[in-house]
Design a protein around this nucleic acid. Structure first.
Lengths: 227, 227
DNA sequence: TGAGCATTCAATAGAATAATTGAATAGTTG
DNA sequence: CAACTATTCAATTATTCTATTGAATGCTCA
């Protein structure tokens, strides 16, 4: 049972499994998803995923051992980033597979959105057209560094945690469209809730920058005109 | 730390991780790879992967729980198959990622081929052209049912375990090209070794039917003209 | 050079996973 | 219907993975 043939196959599939193991933990997937938005420090990754610093660090090392991410020091911080854009594509194909095969995902999604009143999806194409035309105010509610790394042209950077202090700069006469990272990032959902509470007309752009990019639409990079 | 936000994210990534966990074991990856060739019984999968029947069955159930494969009874046997062609594509993108990111794979590959004398890769394009032109005898050394599910046009079906009994039907004057499943299936390497031992001129078509398909070349299906 | 910082290491306990065995099941065929 | 067959289940053991804690490291910047 130990012919060179089998040994060869075993070692090959063992290598493939390194990738599989790396993406077999929910938290590591969340880390990868965040890193698709750009490089980040251990600290900020830990905060966003709800992990302890030490635990986040360990997960990142697992990802690094599988060669999916790289790290580089930058001042006090060590910034992690995807080792290759291909990793992002792979994550995407995994997401699509999961969405197609696992009915549970749609159920979870619906339950979450259902608990938020008035978050029914609007006609995506009409909305996108108005965004492109600049007929609405577009809000990017991600952290500012992610905005800088790439955002919808004309969008204002209003990180969710600063939203309430920046309300005065937002238009009451025009509809506001808020977006964030991707279909499972719901910063924008919270933003819409807050805006409505204060009497703004606000709607949620499902899919975020990820789907925007996937549709081949342009993104701007660089400095942040905030509201 | 238990706001609905985080609970939502946790459950979403937990779902994604179901796919990840399913592909985190070398043996399950080997099973998936085999199933990309077509449906197969538990018994034959067990034999080809070197697993016990019970163990193979368990792994298959894990894959089924992740909705990556389906099973259906057919006579005495229960045939497993991919739940969707998308699974095959996902496996492919995982393979490509691994090949690109993990240098170990090339090392293992080289070491294995290096131990086989004279298995240096031939010029792939020239070879493919001759295969397409029918200027060589092409041998499909996979099990016959895989041949039936799709093979290179004009290829003869000569399952590896029958090769020695079928030698007399093979041409000595023409070069023989043997292929099998894909880049990591090495049935054809063994076939070439055997053929050479008996004095035939034989070479190995790297990449097998998988790469043939990936290049968009036609495949024939159906009955097997054997040598 | 030394204080201050983010990050990593090390050790542990608890949880999940994999392989093995032998028995049980469900479905088919004659 | 009864015998047979491929497959699955159940229980066990060994292994691997995850989260947690607190201490250690190594870098930066004054």
């Amino acid at each position: 049972m130990k012919n060179p043939h089998r040994r060869f196959k075993d070692s090959i599939y063992e290598q493939f499994a390194r990738i599989g193991k790396a993406v077999s933990s929910p938290k590591r997937l969340e880390l990868l998803d965040l890193l698709c938005q750009g490089q980040k420090s251990v600290e900020s990754l830990a905060k966003e995923t709800g992990l302890t610093i030490a635990n986040a660090s360990q997960h990142l090392q697992v990802l690094r051992a599988a060669r999916l991410v790289d790290a580089e020091r930058e001042g006090y911080y060590i910034k992690y980033r995807l080792a290759d854009q291909m990793v992002c594509q792979f994550f995407h194909s995994m997401r699509v597979l999961a969405e197609n095969r696992l009915a549970e995902i749609e159920i979870i999604m619906r339950r979450f959105l259902g608990s938020k009143e008035g978050m029914e999806p609007v006609d995506r194409n009409v909305l996108l057209q108005r965004v492109r035309d600049g007929a609405v105010t577009v809000l990017d509610v991600r952290p500012e560094d992610e905005y800088r790394a790439g955002h919808i042209p004309g969008a204002l950077s209003v990180p969710l945690d600063q939203l309430e202090t920046l309300l005065s700069g937002l238009p009451r006469e025009q509809e506001i469209v808020a977006y964030c990272r991707g279909p499972y990032c719901v910063l924008a959902v919270e933003a819409v809730e807050t805006l409505r509470k204060y009497g703004f007309r606000a709607i949620w752009l499902e899919g975020g920058i990820l789907d925007w990019r996937a549709m081949g639409l342009a993104v701007d990079t660089g400095n942040a005109p905030s509201a």
